[in-house]
Computed example of a mutant assay.
Amino acid sequence: MGITERAVYRGQLTKLTNSASEYLNSSDSKSDKTEDIDLIEDELVSFIERTNSVLGTLRKCNDKIRPSIKLENAQKEFETIYEYEDKAANILSHLNQRLKRLRKCRDNLDTSSSSSLSIERKKEHTFSSAKLPKLSLKVFSGHFHEWLPFWERFRVAVHDRTDLTGADKFNYLSNHLVGKAADTIAGFTPTNANYDSAVSLLLEQYGNVDKLVDHTMQQLMNLSRINSRHDVTKLRKLYTDIRAHTRSLTALNVPSSQYSIMLRSLILHCLPHDSVIDFHRLHPSKQDKAARSIEDENASPSVGTSEHSSCGGDQLNDILSFIKEEISSLEMAELTNDRRTRTSKVANTCKTAAGLLTTTNIAEFCCFCKSNSHLTEN
């Protein structure tokens, strides 16, 4: 499996280096207008990010296979590994050099254009000419948990723009896909007509709501169990993961009533035993509340009782609030312990006046003649 996976990423790296090389040759002939420079810069950055991503994965594959390489094949294997490394390093060097020259060219254009404006014109358009920072799009490798963040940013930055052609959007899209995601649209030619087809295929493969919900629920079912209630790091990670997954479900329009009760049980299973006891003590079940209500009615029949039963969503909010309070309490306790430790260290390093008198050797001498053969009073 490792050899097959490595072959796939070697092929992907070869495609990337060839495409980058062709792009470098073609981009040299483009004009030096500011809008062209911005477009070329985005594409160069995309090539660099994709190449580094594939190269990093290929290195991991090489590390896995390295122990199983036979001695008689070692020289050939290592020569091939270094050949791919050198190919990637070479194209990255050219890409970075081209990017450096491009940014220098844009700085020169900005300088020359700004110097031609009058002072009054600068004052007039100070606010309107301010340039917003560029939105950097991350690459999508084909993992389901990456799709929603990737697509939302890509949709706003590229897909919904009316000033870009379908071919331009296709180039942006293909430059931000690697691995399995890149293979999904590898058969399409970057044209206006094919862009919508490529997007539809990606949405069918990775934007399917049922698949995304199943994947998110699987992630929730695989939450790690915490052994100690004092492990604030794992407790915060558990809380953060749950919040992230529930937000994903909300974004997919899944009502909390469909998963709250099951998720509550999963979370309780992940918490330490003593934390579960404290939670049930603070948030008793419906049966316990009903029993208490009956006892209250028997004790004072004239007093009316109110119903305290909560729905699944309230139960989920209860346990999340409980975990958040646990985290806050543990962090406050850690701060207090740190403060005590620092205070103790300071106290140990400070000496009292009596200690200084008993531990410091003070030379006795006459304050008039500075002789140490007799005291001042003599």
Rank of each mutant, 00 (worst) to 15 (best):
A251Y: 05
V199I: 14
A7L: 14
R292A: 13
L117P: 04
H308R: 11
D318I: 01
R225M: 13
I267W: 00
G142A: 01
M221K: 02
Q97E: 12
K87T: 06
E334I: 06
N171R: 05
D42K: 10
T352D: 11
L235Q: 03
E295H: 12
T233W: 15
E364K: 09
L24D: 02
P190Q: 11
R155H: 10
A347W: 13
T14H: 12
K134V: 03
R66A: 15
L238M: 02
A354W: 11
E22C: 02
E85C: 03
W151G: 02
H176Q: 01
P255F: 03
G179V: 01
E43G: 02
A363D: 13
S373Q: 15
L330Q: 06
S118Q: 05
K134H: 02
S31D: 15
S27P: 04
D274N: 12
N361K: 07
E124D: 09
S21M: 10
S197M: 13
L316H: 01
K33P: 07
N18P: 03
L266P: 00
N253P: 01
T165H: 06
Y172A: 02
S344N: 15
Q75D: 10
H280A: 06
T216P: 00
E204G: 10
L320K: 01
T126H: 14
M217T: 00
L263W: 00
